[in-house]
Amino acid sequence: MKDHKILFTGAVCAGKTTAIRSLSDIETLDTDAKASDVTVRRKKNTTIAMDYGVLELAQDSRVHLYGTPGQERFSFMWEMLANQFAHDAIGLVLLVDNTRKDPFRDVRFYVKEFGEYIRKRRLIIAVTHSDIEPNPGYNDYLACIRELGLMATVMFVDVRNPKTVLSIVEELISAVELEINWAEVGERILDHNGFSLDFYKPIYEETLLDAAMNKRGILGAMHLGAEQEVLSSNIDEQQSVALLKSMHKLSSAIAQKSELVGEVSNIVVGGPAVRTLSMFSDDDQALCLCSERDVSLPVLKQQASDLLQWSRENDYLA
């Protein structure tokens, strides 16, 4: 039996879990290609340990697919995957979400994080979400990797479609496995009755709310959409919910008016005998937290940005 390995990495929501699941469980495939930007960002789960799947290519050949968690707070897992589980992988697939504010920043970030790893194996930059945001385009990515002095293959993919994920696998494996009938593998993946993937397991996923509750001093969390609608929440007190919603409304109202002074990044209310309520806004969503009085604003800010991986500031990348 020949066992090949491929490691997938990339930022939160880039599509690592979807890619690996695409090859594994056709029933969970999301076929709605018109999902709006907003819908895409309302992702409920984030991977906290790793993704793992196995795809059978032939009787005597299979490929193990590993995915890293996207959040930087789990970066210790990246190391473990790179140095242990997938130390002998044939290549690294860097999934890049084209709707990110600066997708090239993600490229630079991961290329730096996986620098040593990439030097010894192939790198594929697989651009996702290009149906929503077509720019930057193929040539822009080529220019970016040239600038970084990288040898990499750029592919535009939609990881919800198993065939495009398979094309990534083929790109890497066909160099070392000449006998695989890729068309047949593709058919098998798409055939409900013939699961080609024997084993799929997102080792552990947690929701945004769970992740919030695991942070020090956080008593409750609420995730709001652009119209102040509640996407998820575990804050029971109606008073707090109403106040947090009004804070989000306020930040949207200010955002519409004040290009002169900048964007509202957060609003916090507190007092001597009350729980602190805070609201952290992003373009089309907000994270609201209810916390103990003694959690300082810098800590809250750090927790919020970690939770939603918003304004991650890697100074050396700027």
Binding site: Q239, A242, L243, I254, S258, V261, G262, E263, V264, S265, N266, I267, V268, V269, G270, G271, P272, A273, V274, L277, L297
Partner: peptide, 13 residues
């Protein structure tokens, strides 16, 4: 809301 909060902070720009 009959809440007791007496300070607020808003980060902008």
């Amino acid at each position: 809301m009959n809440a007791k909060h007496n300070e607020a902070h808003l980060e902008i720009g």
